[in-house]
Computed example of a mutant assay.
Amino acid sequence: MTDPVFEPVRSQRAFDVIIGQIRAMLRSGELRPGDRLPSERALSEQFQVSRNTVREALRMLEISGLITLRKGATGGAFIAKPDPGVLANGLSDAIQLTAISLSDLTEARLWVESMIVRVACERMTEEHLQALHDNVEQAGKLSAQGDWERKAVVHIEFHNLLAQATGNPILSILMRSLTEVVREIGIAAGPATDDVTLRSRARLLGHLRRRDADQAVAEMEHHLRRLHEMWLTGAYEGSRTPR
């Protein structure tokens, strides 16, 4: 590929202009994953700004997951490959920084997870079903061992596995963002020491195996509403969840 050519920065917000031009080239396809950006010196000349300004812009692009910075003779700034994890974390941070209530979160989960369950019933493979089965089995073993904290983590991962079964990366990113918020609430509330979720998971797996979307959705919605009530009423000892 030929080196991208950037326009000189004419604004006092040089930092934002640099990032904006690079983002625009990514959207247009002029820059693609794996492409190497010009050196800091070349970028500073093209943008007509200091190298420090270029360096800070590149650092922000790296934090956002759009580029990777490598050191050494073969190093430089490279357009990163898409990383759903970075996108999910960014969305999760945005959700947590917004003034949301527990009711807002549960309502969003009911909508999103109901859709995910229906799509998964249509598209999931035997491998997906096995992964879900293994997850529930692992949670059962941790419950028997009294390892409530690790069991809670496994329970949350079940939702991410279910989203992956849809084959839609956007749904997976959205679900991972929501489950990260749920994880934070779970930490504040404290782990549950009962097997209510395990029993619900067993019923849900049965519906999924039969591709019974209506029953699977009903089970998921019942579980999410019950969990909401437990958090809302402080059924978990030491709960500090939002009301």
Rank of each mutant, 00 (worst) to 15 (best):
P84R: 06
A80F: 00
E62W: 01
F78E: 02
I100T: 15
R59E: 11
L61Q: 03
G65D: 03
A73Y: 09
S50W: 14
A80T: 04
P84Y: 07
S92E: 06
S92W: 03
V49I: 12
G90V: 07
I100D: 02
T74S: 11
V54Y: 01
I79M: 01
A77E: 01
V49T: 08
R59W: 14
K71D: 13
V49N: 11
G65Y: 03
I63C: 05
L61M: 13
G65L: 01
P82V: 00
M60H: 14
L91G: 01
R51W: 00
S50R: 11
Q96E: 11
K71E: 15
D104T: 14
G72Y: 15
G72D: 11
P82K: 07
T98K: 14
R51L: 06
T106G: 00
S92R: 05
S64V: 00
S64G: 09
F78V: 13
M60S: 14
Q96M: 09
K81M: 08
V86H: 03
A73K: 14
L91C: 03
L66Q: 05
E62N: 10
L105D: 06
G72V: 05
A77M: 00
L61C: 02
A57W: 01
A57V: 04
M60W: 12
F78A: 10
I67Q: 03
R59S: 08
R70K: 10
L87K: 06
A73T: 15
A77H: 04
L102Y: 04
L102P: 02
A99K: 13
A99M: 13
G75Q: 02
T74E: 12
P84T: 04
T98W: 03
N52Y: 15
S92F: 10
V49C: 07
G85N: 05
T74Y: 10
S103I: 04
D83T: 02
T74K: 11
S50I: 10
L97P: 00
L105S: 05
L69D: 06
A94R: 06
D104S: 11
P82M: 05
A94P: 03
L87Y: 07
L66N: 00
L102K: 02
D104K: 08
T74G: 10
T68Q: 09
S101F: 05
I67D: 06
G75S: 07
V86N: 04
T68C: 07
V54D: 01
A88V: 10
A77T: 03
D83W: 06
K71G: 15
V54R: 02
A94K: 13
S50D: 11
A80I: 03
L105G: 00
A94W: 06
I95A: 07
A80V: 00
R70Q: 10
R59V: 07
A88M: 13
D93S: 13
R59T: 08
E62D: 14
G85F: 07
L102G: 04
K71F: 15
A73L: 12
A94T: 13
S101R: 10
R55S: 15
L97Y: 09
R70Y: 09
A57Y: 01
A73W: 11
L58M: 14
D104I: 02
S50E: 12
T106F: 09
R59F: 13
L66A: 08
T53S: 10
I67A: 08
S50H: 12
I100N: 10
T74D: 13
